[in-house]
Design a protein around this nucleic acid. Structure first.
Lengths: 106, 106
DNA sequence: GCGGCTCATATCCGCAGTGTCAGGGGTTCA
DNA sequence: TGAACCCCTGACACTGCGGATATGAGCCGC
């Protein structure tokens, strides 16, 4: 009766796991907070950190893969905005499975 | 004005980041679900997976480090139980910062 | 079309994470 | 005390992640 829960493969990761992986980095958390204030292009985000542009770009792609942000090209710039619908749904789906969290959810 | 958000060091990680790291692994998610049903000792948990006992033990220590589980020795066994208070608080603290999640929180 | 600006991708490097097996410490019981 | 059981830790291998630099692709303005 071993491995009865193993349902994912290396290349198709559960959505919720992807979301948690995306959230499990301080820089990406901070990026989300920046995008919560307002949508920003990549250069603006880079300016907030002591990290190179490619590094930020990769963080953004991780967040995009997790569907936590949405990108849109505007001329030369690429504007990123928060996709808080994913945040909200992920939260309800995962935490809603735990009885101890029910009281905190609507 | 770079790096204005950098507030943590390598060895003192923010609690919320530790929680997300702990949650960002499928095996650990499944362990939490097992412990949500009831508290279990290590052997019982190992029996649910195709992983060695030391591997499960490591996962349990990660969950314990994140304060998501509580361990208690009972004779030969070590019983783990879910600490859903941490789950609930983490959820409210982090997701509560995002306007798009307010409607889902009580 | 060319140069310049913005952003993404390729590649490399160091380190952290996840798995293994071997071994040891704590507990129980005879 | 010693054997048996349960679990943790150490050492190692392999993989993945998060940084960097170099380069390419896309979009302007001239």
């Amino acid at each position: 009766m071993a491995a009865e829960f193993i349902t994912e493969t290396v290349h198709s990761e559960r959505r919720i796991t992807k979301v948690f992986k995306a959230l499990s980095d301080s820089t990406r958390q901070q990026i989300l907070h920046l995008l919560e204030e307002k949508h920003r292009n990549v250069g603006e985000i880079v300016g907030k950190f002591d990290l190179s542009q490619p590094t930020i770009s990769r963080h953004l792609s991780v967040l995009k893969e997790a569907d936590l942000v949405i990108d849109q090209r505007q001329g030369q710039n690429v504007v990123y905005r928060l996709n808080d619908g994913t945040l909200s749904r992920s939260m309800q789906h995962f935490f809603g499975q735990f009885a101890g969290c029910q009281s905190a959810l609507r």
